[in-house]
Design a binder for these strands. Sequence first.
DNA 1: TTTAATTACGCAATCGTTCCCGGTATCGAT
DNA 2: ATCGATACCGGGAACGATTGCGTAATTAAA
Lengths: 341, 341
Amino acid sequence: MKYEAVTIKDIAKALGLSTSTVSRALRDSYEISPTTKKQVLEYAEQINYKPNPIALSLKEKRSRSIGVIVCEIANSFFSQAINGIESIAYDKGYNVIISQSHESYEREVIDLQYLASRSIDGLLISVSAETEDFSHLKNLHDRGFPIVFFDRVAESIHTHKVIVDNFKGAYDATKHLLDNGHKYIANLAGSPHLSITKERLAGYLKAIEDYGIPYDESYVAYCLHGGMLYEEVEVALNKFTSLKQIPDAIVASADKLTTNCLRYFKTKGIKVPADVALMGFSNLDLTDLLSPSLSVVKQPAFQMGQLATEYLLQLIESKRPVTEFEHIVLPLELMIRESSL
Amino acid sequence: MKYEAVTIKDIAKALGLSTSTVSRALRDSYEISPTTKKQVLEYAEQINYKPNPIALSLKEKRSRSIGVIVCEIANSFFSQAINGIESIAYDKGYNVIISQSHESYEREVIDLQYLASRSIDGLLISVSAETEDFSHLKNLHDRGFPIVFFDRVAESIHTHKVIVDNFKGAYDATKHLLDNGHKYIANLAGSPHLSITKERLAGYLKAIEDYGIPYDESYVAYCLHGGMLYEEVEVALNKFTSLKQIPDAIVASADKLTTNCLRYFKTKGIKVPADVALMGFSNLDLTDLLSPSLSVVKQPAFQMGQLATEYLLQLIESKRPVTEFEHIVLPLELMIRESSL
DNA sequence: TTTAATTACGCAATCGTTCCCGGTATCGAT
DNA sequence: ATCGATACCGGGAACGATTGCGTAATTAAA
């Protein structure tokens, strides 16, 4: 079933004018007499004329829409970031087209192809947990396509990036556990390919080093899907709990990692923080209602989305190639509650 | 900074052919010789030619993208529904453009205008809590624009609708509390304008009626923003707790209502379910980890998104006007846990 | 009264693609 | 040798809007 919309031609025909005149009248050009303008404007209003954005896109070679690729929108960090993205895009008159990679490299590549084939003016992306090869992004970027990374970045691509101080966040979280007397702190890490995983791991390592605790690699476990699958978290935690010296605290490096960790403990009847303390990265807004209430490292997701979008629009609307790129590092917020005591 | 993409003209020029021939070769027309086809295909591949979807949209009068308007994507029900929407849209080669009304009528109208001005082929919408007047949707629908409602529907508009059995969900939830010996059951309701609020309220009322409990209107409180603001929930619960007969159980009729209710009790030191039992509509996937674990009525959000999208695409791709509309009512799932015992 | 300037509008190209018309060339059949 | 058929390809309009340029009509200036 077709939805026929009114065009500038309909107005022109009805009023016995040319399309040029109508177009100019609508744009309030000085070349059109006040009489004609009034006539056109009134008729356009009457028949509810709306300019066709697709025709404009074709002519102006811009669609006024931006693409966003994240792993999952049903993840509080990303839905909050998208809120930030949307708030800026909305103000500037841009559409937002969202795609999910579901942590799959293949899907990310397809999404990118799909979006980049000229229906978007620029891209905001937080790469998938599987992504090791960034050539799909690099190709596009090299051809001048505006891309801004947030949270999970491709280090090898030289463009704007908005991230958080993952090193410090993990360092502070680990330090807090150490200060509370924990000695055997394990790190439940995300995908080893991700920049954030590496940085958070480094922060963790530095903290235990600063406290004179020898590094034991069996205290670090990676989850290739970033904790999206309960099973991978289960495997990792089974590994920890079967060590001869069971960890007395855990730092979980991502949202799903943290909650699935809590689920594991609940299932196994392990008491938090009595048996094991827990502190994780999370942006859920009800971590305070969990049992026990969760100590978390919280990212300024909304602000990250906003900043990334501002930089992207700056790239898109810049007249000439941009060569100076910002590398924004935002602070993280530590929220200490019951689970880490 | 501009991103120049290759067009069919570039291929035509490079190969000394006309654009018509190139176009036909790319679409594998029988009118083109195998030699020419091969040549064109290979060159197109080489220079990474991708057809311009905007030019196609202009010509075909369809954009192959659908709009979605929800109140908040940072709401588990909606993010799950969007996952369902996206899964179908992706399979059928459609883009998804998401807008948020943030429960504001004004914003919903603007979003709709923005989307409907011909950059989308159809719309999926769950109306905002504020929306009483549906004329913005009615106008569009009357002009043949494909719209499908899910969850929060406009009863007066005759089109496909995908909802859940809210009446039964609320009835069963209330019945469960009654069966557990609760007598003074309050209903924390959402916006009185919403269809779901009315249906859920009706289910609640029927249950207490069936159990011979007289209806007392002071046991029902509406939250105009659907619980999005903690303050409105606080006001409602303050009202309940100041009654001479304080409710011994509460049915919360929406996600945010439920969690904010729990937050209120935690803040006030009210024990759940010892002091007051709680049962609410929620799609959070960690209600089992809350303190206490939450009894919920859960909606098949993903499936709702999928179904709504299938019906929308059916409308969009139908050759002639559709006059028979589906009114899908899906069952709800009751998950009994600690908070309602 | 003639000329120059101003006003107000139309024509046509453009964006990238498709598709309806043609057209030419080659071949086989008569 | 002529005709018809087939194979193959190009020209140009169209989608909806913008815009540079041309021009008629009107007005002002000389």
